[in-house]
Simulated scan of single mutants.
Amino acid sequence: MVIKDSNFESNIKFCATCGAQIHEKAEICPKCGVRCLDMENSLVQNSSSKSNKSVILAVFGVISGVLAGILLFVLSPLMGIVANNSDNMLISSFAGSLAVVCVLASVFGLIGIFLEGHDKKVAAFQYIVCGFFVLICGVFIIGLIPSIFFFVAGLLAYQDSKRVVDKNE
Rank of each mutant, 00 (worst) to 15 (best):
I3M: 10
S6N: 10
N7E: 14
N11F: 01
I12G: 01
I12F: 04
I12A: 03
I12M: 09
K13A: 03
F14I: 15
A16T: 05
A16D: 10
C18E: 08
G19D: 12
G19I: 12
A20W: 09
I28G: 07
C29D: 06
P30Q: 04
P30W: 04
K31N: 11
C32K: 02
C32S: 04
C32R: 02
C32D: 04
E40D: 12
E40W: 05
N41I: 06
S42C: 03
L43Q: 09
L43H: 07
Q45M: 07
N46E: 13
N46K: 14
S48P: 02
S49P: 01
K50G: 01
K50R: 13
K53V: 00
S54M: 10
V55Y: 03
I56C: 05
F60R: 06
G65T: 09
V66H: 05
L67K: 06
A68M: 01
G69S: 05
L71V: 01
L72E: 03
F73R: 04
S76W: 06
S76Y: 06
P77Q: 07
L78E: 11
M79E: 07
M79A: 14
G80I: 01
I81L: 14
V82P: 01
S86P: 00
N88D: 04
M89I: 14
I91E: 02
F94P: 02
F94Q: 12
A95K: 03
A95M: 14
G96Q: 12
G96N: 10
L98C: 15
V100S: 11
V103Y: 05
V103I: 15
S106W: 00
S106Y: 02
V107A: 12
F108A: 07
F108S: 04
L110M: 14
I111F: 08
I111M: 07
I111R: 03
I111P: 01
I111Y: 06
G112N: 06
I113C: 13
I113P: 02
F114M: 10
L115A: 11
G117K: 15
H118D: 08
A124M: 07
F125E: 00
Q126E: 09
Y127I: 03
Y127L: 09
I128C: 13
I128Q: 11
I128Y: 11
F132P: 02
V134S: 05
C137G: 13
I141C: 05
I141L: 15
I142G: 05
S147T: 06
S147H: 05
S147Y: 04
F151L: 02
V152W: 12
V152R: 09
V152D: 11
A153Y: 00
A153Q: 01
L155V: 12
A157P: 00
A157W: 00
Q159D: 04
S161Q: 03
K162V: 10
K162D: 08
K162Y: 05
R163P: 00
V164T: 02
V165C: 02
V165L: 11
D166T: 12
D166V: 11
K167T: 06
K167Y: 11
E169T: 10
